[in-house]
Design a protein around this nucleic acid. Structure first.
Lengths: 221, 221
DNA sequence: TTATTATTAGAGTCATTACTCTAAAGGTCA
DNA sequence: TGACCTTTAGAGTAATGACTCTAATAATAA
């Protein structure tokens, strides 16, 4: 693999595990056993590394959120959306963790992220409108717009919440369960809008995920 | 005012406005026109300042979230809860903004925050259970537990979301509107669980707040 | 008044960190 | 082979930031 790509990969891993604030360019170089000079030959500065990682993330989310125009949406689509989005959030979790600071220090990134956010919110709304057209949801426009925004905030805050409130020894092992718990919470928010005849099937789907947050021992019951 | 209190007050203001990461102990001392030595006479280190600020925040939230045992809950109670909680979040907004990093660097704080979180989640659940007992909500236990958790995440992430996604020139002026928009989003999440006869009054209450996020021009419509 | 304690100033230290600079090594193509 | 471009090493720098130390000054008590 090219040195440039190795730097991006190592940075992403280290940022995710330790937080961007705690990872210096010297650390990254040391982890790869290359010199700082070498790192700065490939990247103008630390911001540039973050920006490049962000671009990969953005691309991935854009792909994941595409709304099919040739067919009608199903429950399974919704699940697929959530799974791929949560997986992306996990793989790039440092981004939302430190988002405010990253945006504050990089105007270019901030502008780009704002456009991205609007695009995502639009897609999320379109998905909900699509599900309503498929006859699954019972809700007016204002309901769905508020729902889309709440979904966005919940999803992007999920791993931050997890990290702050649940003490986790081995992040990697638990990630699948925590990810599913997040999906469960989103489904719980949508449930009251589901038409009666779809509640059974959706409940079954959620059950197959195997875990609700209720089963995590840290929460009051 | 005592120097110690002035340090806390100035720190809180600066942390909120610039982010904890961007405010050094030297900055704080300079802002107060005192020497760094003086600051360190009153506080062992920067963590200590943060910890002390956190204690004030925690106390305030605990008071705000108290559930009355001598009477039944009303819609107005819910509004009052949300208003006081959001106001607290605004006044201490740096805390949730940088929470992950703060907890990572202070085990004592992390432990204390975890206990606090559980207490808050319990209170939030109790409030929802109380509203159901008052005959306003139509939901089962699992619904309300999920709702309580989603409420907590939304509320604590609200200003972070605002800060990342809405470009704001003058924070102070806009805070009231943004705060109300947050309340609107929470009500939107609860609405489907409201019994028919309460939807009118609640809608009226929400209307009196004057603003939904729909009216903020940054969002797609 | 005098002894003692609390508070403050401010120069200074030590570690960290983003980033630079120069020179060397490696690869490629005529 | 040799000229040239790309990649790399690694020492070094300048700024920053959390924190320390000493001595001076106020406040208080005896």
């Amino acid at each position: 693999m090219k040195t440039r790509d190795r730097i991006i990969q190592a940075s992403l891993e280290m940022f995710n595990e330790q937080g961007e604030r705690n990872v210096t360019t010297n650390h990254i170089a040391a982890a790869l056993s290359i010199s700082p000079g070498n790192l700065y030959y490939h990247f103008k500065n630390k911001q540039q590394i973050i920006y490049d990682i962000y671009l990969i993330y953005e691309k991935r989310v854009d792909v994941n959120l595409q709304v099919p125009t040739d067919r009608v949406l199903t429950i399974n689509d919704k699940l697929t959306y959530l799974q791929s989005i949560f997986q992306g959030l996990w793989d790039f979790r440092f981004l939302h963790r430190d988002l405010q600071h990253l945006l504050q220090n990089d105007e270019e990134l901030h502008k780009r992220y704002n456009i991205f956010f609007k695009r995502c919110l639009k897609s999320t709304q379109d998905i909900y409108f699509g599900l309503r057209e498929s006859g699954m949801l019972n809700a007016n426009d204002a309901d769905l717009r508020a729902l889309a925004l709440n979904t966005w905030i919940l999803v992007t805050s999920w791993f931050g919440f997890i990290h702050s409130n649940l003490l986790i020894e081995n992040e990697q092992e638990e990630s699948r369960e925590l990810l599913n718990a997040g999906i469960y919470q989103i489904f719980a928010m949508e449930r009251p809008f589901l038409k009666e005849e779809f509640r059974g099937p959706v409940a079954k789907l959620v059950e197959q995920l195997g875990l609700s947050l209720d089963q995590l021992s840290v929460l009051p019951s």
